[in-house]
Structures are given as C-alpha cells and as structure tokens.
C-alpha cells in the first residue's frame, strides 16, 4: 500500500470527504450511545435540543463558542504559515491576566476607553508569549511544538502563583481567585436581558478581519507563501523570518482575546479553571474548519453545541458526557484522515 498524490482533486473529494468525516463521527457516537444502553436517535435529539432547543440553550452555545472562535483563529492563522502553535492555552491565560491587572481598578477610565485598552494590552501579552518560541524557532531552530506545548504548563503554574499571591482577592475567603472586575471593565451584553456579551461580536469581527488579511493584504499573501513553500518564498525575496514573527504576534494576540473575553465578558474574575482546554480545543476547531477563518466560526459553533448539548443529554439520558469528548476526538482524527485523502489516493500494489 502506498499513497499517490492527486494533482487536482475533484470538488466531491475536497468537500465530500470532510463531510463524510463528520458523518462518520455521528455513527461512532451512535454505536457508543447504544453500548451505553440508550437509543442513539434520542441521544442526538437530546444533544440538539440541549444545544439549541431553547433561548437559554442557544445563548449558552454561543457563549461557549466565543473563546473557541478566538483560539481556533489563533491556531488557523499559525498553522497556515506552518507555525505549529500548540500554546493557545498559555496565550489565553496571558490575556486573562492582563484583563484582571488592568480591569480591577488600576485604571479608572470610562468603559469606552478602558475596554479597548484592555483588549489591545491583552493581545500584546498573548503576542509576547508566542514571540519567545517564535524567536527560538527562527534564531536557533528550536521546535515550536515542544516549546509552546510545554510553556502551557509553566504559564498555568505562573497564573496559579499570581492567584495565590499578587492577584489574590483579599475578600475571597482564601480561594485562589482574583478580585472582580470593576463594572466599567466588563464587556456589556449584546442585547439587554440576554446573557450574551460583546465578546461574541468581537469574535465574529476577528474572523472577518483574519479572512480579509489572508485574502487581501500582502501580509496574508506572505503568510500563505511561507506556509506553502518556505524555500520558494525565501528565494523570491519574501522576508521569511519577519513573516513568521508577525504571524506569531497575530496568532498569540487572537488567543489572548479569548482570555480577555472570558474574564471581561463572562466570568468577571480569574480562576484557574477559566479555560477547560479552550486552547487545545482550538486546534480541533481549526482543523475541522480546514484552517479557513469563516470555517472556524462554523466549527466553533459545532463543537460548542456538542459540548453544551452533551451536558443536558447526559442528565436526561444517563449517557456520560465523555461522549462529547469522544465525538470531538474522532471528528479530529477523521478530519485529518479526510484531509490526507483529499491530497492522496491509496494504491495497492
């Protein structure tokens, strides 16, 4: 058996296979649901109902999708330039820390000034966190997969220290938790009375901005060129190192917005469980989206819906919520396989 490259895959192959991957995910989930003793159709029904069957459920799904859009965009931007950023988790927390540092009373500015300043500073912090591995990669050739991944753990311990020390809420009764943000530092709700904040709108805008950058600007052209063929890019005079560093800044900044939006929009304070692995799930989101920024929005909604729906399904049908994790894991693996099969054909000799 060997793989033979396909020069010009048909549209059916390019879109059909990813669709088949998602479909197969549901088949696997159905089998598992049956093993757990439930009727698969009612399980899926419950998941869909739990994710968007009511106004509350739908808003919950959109809220859950918001950080995933940011981290998904961060990963998509970096992966497209072949910068393997596995550190969106650390960059997310960097954004969250900045939101707390600036938003708990240090700056007593009106909301219209304070929030943009917090967002920009959060992006800078996230950018800085990814800049270090990017510099190590471009200067010394250190593999960024290792450095970004391991830095996640270091940064989480650093946040843990902050929450036990400098940022600890004096009124928190000893819990490792930051003070609450002042009201002017909170992202307002999109519509009064609905539990959905401006972070979601910012996520959609970011996706649009990334799409415009990719397709309309020289920077987008350079990122794609470097990602597709670094040797040809260098030969053509594209400043490869600068492009990689700029990509790192953009990617880190996007991931940090997830942390800013979670703290300023949803939670109001920082705890160690702010992110249940949004940085890692962002990789799944980006892969499901085939690294396309608009696709990231769709994939983030899909992933969020499965998580939120599985929670309520679990309560109603007694099937463990692990089903959601398995669905995402198999969706990711099958999607990677589908991407491979859009580019190669398996031949038996």
């Amino acid at each position: 058996m060997r793989l033979e490259p396909i020069a010009n895959p048909t549209a059916a192959r390019r879109f059909g296979l990813p669709a088949l991957a998602v479909g197969t995910t549901f088949v696997i989930a159905a089998v598992l649901a049956m093993i757990a003793g439930a009727d698969p159709f009612s399980v899926f029904g419950l998941i869909i109902h739990g994710a968007m069957g009511s106004k509350f459920a739908l808003l919950e799904t959109l809220n859950r999708a918001t950080p995933l859009i940011f981290t998904g965009l961060a990963v998509a931007v970096a992966f497209r330039a072949k910068l393997w950023n596995i550190g969106a988790e650390a960059q997310l927390y960097a954004g969250a820390v900045i939101a707390v540092v600036l938003g708990t009373g240090a700056l007593a500015w009106p909301s219209g000034v304070l929030l943009p300043v917090m967002a920009v500073c959060a992006m800078l912090a996230g950018a800085l966190v990814l800049l270090v591995p990017a510099l190590l990669k471009t200067r010394l050739g250190v593999d960024e997969v290792v450095t970004t991944l391991l830095f996640n753990f270091i940064f989480l311990l650093f946040v843990s220290y902050l929450l036990e020390g400098p940022l600890k809420d004096p009124m928190g009764m000893g819990w490792p938790k930051s003070s609450r943000l002042i009201p002017d530092a909170r992202l307002p709700r999109l519509v009064d009375g609905l539990r959905l904040h401006w972070g979601f709108a910012l996520a959609l805008l970011s996706a649009l901005a990334v799409w415009v950058i990719n397709t309309r600007t020289t920077f987008g052209y350079e990122m794609r060129a470097v990602g597709q063929n670094v040797e040809a890019a260098r030969f053509a005079g594209i400043p490869v190192t600068v492009v990689i560093l700029k990509t790192a800044l953009l990617s880190g900044g996007l991931a940090a917005l997830a942390g800013f939006s979670e703290v300023a929009g949803l939670k109001g304070s920082l705890t160690l469980d702010l992110s249940p692995g949004f940085g890692y799930t962002g990789i799944v989101v980006a892969m499901l989206a085939l690294l396309h920024p608009i696709g990231v929005v769709a994939a983030a909604l899909f992933v969020a819906a499965i998580f939120v729906g599985a929670d309520s399904m679990s309560r109603a049908a007694g099937v463990p919520t692990y089903l959601a994790d398995i669905m995402l894991a198999s969706a990711l693996l099958l999607m990677v396989l589908a991407i491979l099969l859009t580019k190669f054909r398996v031949r038996r000799d």
Partner: peptide, 28 residues
C-alpha cells in the same frame, strides 16, 4: 524553489514583485 505548487498562476507570477508592483500600502 521557483514556484509554489498550490498557489495559482497569478500568485506565482507576482512572487517577486507583489510588494512593489501589485500592492498599495499593504493591500493587494
């Protein structure tokens, strides 16, 4: 070295001159 396989012909034609000839202030 000479071309980027998955870029289209237009994108490959401007590899060396995209910044000077085919963009204004960063916009393609």
């Amino acid at each position: 070295t000479g071309t980027i396989a998955d870029f289209d012909l237009t994108e490959n034609a401007i590899l060396e001159t995209y910044a000077t000839e085919f963009a204004r202030r960063g916009w393609m």
